[in-house]
Design a binder for these strands. Structure first.
Length: 723
DNA sequence: ACCAGGCTTCTTTTT
DNA sequence: GAAGCCTGGT
């Protein structure tokens, strides 16, 4: 029996409520993961078989952790528990059903780049210039459609604008191309099973009966397709538990729909709702800061987190001169705090809105020799060199995978280009054979030098193919890299960092070896699909003592003693694109809320007055800074803040206004202190010559030539002196 | 087929 | 400021 005494009363009640739909509205830090973990264990202890339980988490890492905690609670290993992300679960279902549903079992999963290259090709063949319709935009629309379970035919009802008809055709063709390539994109992993459940009621019945209990974490971030999938699988049993927090919904751009959680009570019959409002994570001040920020949002479910914990330290506001200055001050604050409070490096996290912000921190940390780990950013398996090798492997499992085929045959460069590929494609089409098989009959199409090049490529694939089953995946990958002379190619192509790239290849080979040892499966396709679904956070080792850097999005669900929310600036956070729409501003605010509520003991909010972005500048306190209540800031009132340094007055005041100042102003500083042609000194860039000048008063904008580089700078931010 | 060099554009956020 | 695109030359 599972001991539920460690739970508070509402937690326990929501765990014990197993007969009907259960909605757990759980604020940040109120123990929602705990509820899910205990509930799974409780179900098993009540005789439910692990394989009858479907538990959906937001990341693979969360799934792994939950599984191991369940085992810990039950004191026995739990086999065959269906726990994973929506995507991971759907891949498992697809593997089992693919052939019944008319797909190949060894399908490939296309990532964003792969998908876009398919769309690009299609747009090209239609002669549509990218100015008219960018592949990226098309992909966004398709993703949006898929997130809402909208088929190409229905797209015209769903979308608006003049080229919807065209886009819907491209969407349709895109689906056909993917099908021909035996590939699914990320969204298809959900859309296809949902579609097929509609088409094959008997397979739906099978899965519906299989899962007697369904649990979904982070329900506020599910999209329509996921909702429909859940609804279908739950069926009449009604044994579903969803856990979520409307204040932490931060994925609407990925189709997440708050309606799912807001409407849960009316969607299912006899729903019992539990609220978890006691926060066990954060101090009183942190919670107060978080609450006052999120209370600026409208349309929330009524909920107010409280805590028994002491008020603790106040939220520290750090105003910095530049992004470099911010990085330095954050890092030195971390050094100070770790001595003062006895925190380890892994007790801190640096959070930011965009991945690009990690750079200035990396520079400082590397210089100081402080170990750090970046979560997210360019994912390992999205690295060019990794994708190159994987492309070869993908062809082995799926000989129709056109995207990988093109990638592999052109890398390393071996004198085969679009023309030759087109001929192979056409030949394969005519003879109704796979691209891979077409290579074997290359002598029917080519002669001379091209023939020998094609044969050379084919030899690599053939020898890898022969190794399958007899040798490990790692050996096969190694064989490919050697036969293709890939290291040499890297050396030629990337002389300055080829060593790092070679290391990555070796890491890939090691990972393949480990995969085989761990799973006793020699399944290349399983490896490949698992690899496609690895999230940045999944490979993060929270045991290792290093400073962690990540985006606010990645931080969801995590907690740290000391949190730094950086770049809380105008023009950065809230992200400028969110200003189109008040709902988006509210989502940005929730993101800020998520950031604050990650903290147990200490929160620091920092912003730079001037940040180099896209070759120009932005900066100054964000509107969110002014939403932090003065009584929990370690600067009591804005007036005191004003008194300290004059420049702060401007930035704080601006932060309180709801306006975008990034626009250019027509008037100029005639007769003022900055004259075109004169020289100034900038703290970062050194001596420079003013070449142009616009704006007035606070907003004098200068164009200055430093060496041979021109920079645009707001005069008052630049701390300029005459030189 | 491939490369260099100049040009534009930018995708926040991620499974 | 970097990455990707196109162009024209080899």
């Amino acid at each position: 029996m599972v001991d539920l005494n460690a739970l508070n009363s509402s937690q326990r009640e929501s765990v014990e409520h197993i007969e009907y739909p259960t909605l757990v509205l759980a604020g940040a830090g109120s123990g929602k993961t705990r509820v899910l973990t205990y509930k799974i264990a409780y179900l098993v202890s009540r005789g439910i078989k692990p394989w009858q339980i479907l538990a959906v988490t937001f990341t693979n890492k969360a799934a792994r952790e939950m599984a191991s905690r369940v085992e810990h609670l039950l004191h026995i290993p739990v086999q065959n528990l269906w726990i994973g992300t929506f995507h991971g679960i759907c891949v498992r279902i697809l593997r089992r059903e693919a052939e019944n549903w008319g797909f190949r079992r060894d399908f490939t999963i296309y990532d964003e780049d792969d998908s876009i290259s398919v769309i690009k090709k299609d747009l090209k063949s239609r002669g549509i210039p990218k100015e008219q319709l960018s592949p990226y935009r098309v992909k966004n629309i398709i993703r949006n459609a898929k997130n809402n379970f909208v088929s190409p035919d229905k797209l015209t009802e769903f979308a608006y604008g003049h080229d919807v008809k065209l886009i819907s055709e491209v969407y349709k063709r895109y689906m056909e191309r993917l099908h021909a390539a035996g590939a699914f994109d990320f969204d298809d992993l959900l859309v296809r099973p949902l579609e097929m459940f509609g088409k094959y009621p008997e397979s739906l019945k099978k899965w519906k009966e299989k899962f007697s209990h369904i649990l979904v974490d982070e329900y506020q971030d599910t999209n329509r397709t996921q909702y429909l999938l859940v609804k279908l699988l739950v069926g009449k049993s009604g044994n579903i538990t969803v856990v979520g927090d409307d204040d932490q919904s931060i994925y609407s751009w990925r189709g997440a729909d708050l309606k799912n959680i807001l409407g849960f009570e009316s969607d299912f019959k006899r729903v019992k709702t539990f609220r978890l409002e006691e926060n066990y994570r954060s101090t009183g001040n942190i919670l107060m800061a978080a609450n006052s920020v999120v209370e600026n949002n409208k349309g929330r479910m009524s909920k107010r987190l409280w805590t028994d914990r002491p008020d603790g330290d106040k939220v520290k506001l750090l105003e910095c001169l530049s992004d470099q200055d911010e990085a330095e001050r954050v890092v030195s604050t971390i050094e100070k705090e770790s001595t003062k409070y006895g925190f380890k490096l892994r007790d801190f996290v640096v959070l930011y809105r965009t991945n690009a912000q990690s750079r200035s921190f990396e520079d400082v940390l590397r210089r100081k020799g402080i170990p750090y780990a970046i979560v997210g950013g360019v994912r390992f398996y999205e690295r060019m060199e990794i994708k190159d090798i994987l492309a070869y492997l993908r062809i082995l499992t799926n000989p129709n995978d056109i995207v990988s085929f093109i990638r592999a045959i052109t890398t390393p460069k071996r004198g085969i280009g679009p023309k030759t590929i087109e001929v192979i494609e056409k030949f394969a089409g005519e003879k109704k054979i796979s691209l891979f098989d077409a290579l074997n009959r290359a002598d029917e199409i080519f002669s001379g030098e091209i023939l020998s090049k094609v044969k050379e490529f084919n030899n690599i694939l053939q020898s890898a193919l022969k190794m399958r089953g007899e040798y490990g995946l790692d050996k096969i990958a190694q064989e490919i890299a050697e036969k293709a002379d890939y290291a040499k190619y890297l050396k030629n192509e990337y002389p300055d960092n080829f060593e790092e790239r070679v290391d990555n290849i070796n890491e890939l080979i090691t990972a393949m070896g480990e995969f085989e040892n761990m799973t006793d499966e020699d399944d290349l396709s399983t490896f490949l699909s698992e690899v496609s679904l690895v999230a940045g956070i999944d490979s993060w080792d929270d045991e290792y003592d290093a400073l962690t850097l990540m985006t606010l999005h990645s931080a969801k669900g995590l907690e740290f003693p000391s949190v730094f929310i950086t770049g809380v600036e105008r023009g950065l956070f809230p992200h400028p694109r969110a200003f189109d729409n008040n709902l988006d501003i509210e989502e940005e605010r929730r993101l800020f809320y998520v950031g604050i509520t990650r903290a147990e003991e200490r929160v620091h909010v920092s912003y730079a007055l001037q940040r180099a972005r896209h070759g120009s500048y932005s900066g100054g306190a964000s509107m969110f800074v002014s939403e932090l209540p003065c009584n929990v800031l370690d600067i009591e009132t804005p007036e005191q803040l004003y008194a300290k340094i004059p420049v702060r007055k401007q930035s704080i005041r601006r932060a309180m206004e709801f306006e975008d100042y990034s626009q250019e102003l027509p008037d100029s500083d005639e007769g003022g202190q900055y004259r075109v042609g004169s020289y100034i000194r900038h703290p970062v860039f050194g001596r420079g010559k003013i070449t142009a000048c616009s704006g007035s008063g606070d907003r004098i904008k200068l164009t200055i030539l430093f060496g041979n580089k021109e920079k645009k700078i707001l005069a008052k931010y630049g701390k300029l002196t005459h030189a």
